[in-house]
């Protein structure tokens, strides 16, 4: 589902953000990405979600070669992936229901099927009873669960999460990780960037370590 072949990324300066990155993540795998700040984690995620391109090498995600993708194809590629941010990125003037429904509305689904699917997913993440609340009036853990619900509602092949527990306490972090594992068990490839080494150790999942733009460890 995710494949990097000899990927280099250099920013003007020059700053070598990624150096000869080689990785392959299969369908339904759960993988952690660790590394200190500035190691290149965000650059890697930007490439996976087509917000940036490699200086050289090949990046393939969900059947798309992102080095060759045309601008007009990018929105359709993004409908095949889900993204979760540390700061949730919820629209504050919309209810939980409206936030979660967005990907289906963008895809042009009918109102009735949108409603059914949104309630199913909200049930899955334990937020059905808060569907009419606004993000500012629910807890951080609930906001992150809403963001995950929005990221999985269109059943993406790949879910990437950039520090999804960075703003949460340990108990809520465990809840979110449990939720991501459940998503993975349904066949979605889940790729999570995190600083929380303790949690990574406890979860016993494949872990990639990035340092100075190069992959220096893979527990595979």
């Amino acid at each position: 589902m995710i494949e990097f072949l000899h990927v280099y990324k250099t920013y003007p300066g020059p700053v070598h953000a990624l150096k000869n990155v080689e990785l392959k993540i299969g369908k339904g795998e759960f993988v952690f990405l660790t590394g200190p700040s500035g190691a290149g984690k965000t650059t890697l995620f930007k490439m996976i979600s087509a917000y940036d391109t490699a200086t050289s090498g090949d990046v393939k995600v969900a059947g798309y070669n992102l080095q060759e993708i045309q601008d007009k194809q990018i929105p359709f590629f993004r409908r095949k992936i889900g993204v979760v941010f540390q700061d949730f990125k919820l629209l504050k003037d919309r209810t939980i229901f409206e936030n979660v429904a967005l990907p289906l509305l963008v895809r042009g689904d009918k109102a009735q099927s949108v409603q059914r699917r949104v309630y199913d997913v909200l049930e899955q993440v334990g937020l059905a009873h808060k569907h009419d609340q606004y993000p500012d009036f629910i807890s951080g853990g609930e906001q992150q669960r809403t963001a995950i619900a929005r990221a999985i509602i269109h059943q993406p092949g790949v879910l990437i999460a950039d520090e999804p527990t960075g703003n949460l306490d340990p108990r809520l972090s465990e809840e979110i990780m449990d939720l991501l594992e459940r998503v993975c068990s349904q066949g979605t490839t889940v790729f999570v960037a995190t600083h929380d080494h303790e949690m990574v150790k406890r979860r016993k999942k494949r872990t990639l370590e990035l340092k100075d733009g190069a992959i220096v460890g893979d527990t595979l």
Partner: peptide, 16 residues
């Protein structure tokens, strides 16, 4: 701006 970022992230086309 946040709305635009989110719309792009979930696959909205430029015209959307």
């Amino acid at each position: 701006k946040d709305e635009i970022v989110v719309l792009e992230m979930i696959g909205a086309t430029q015209s959307m």
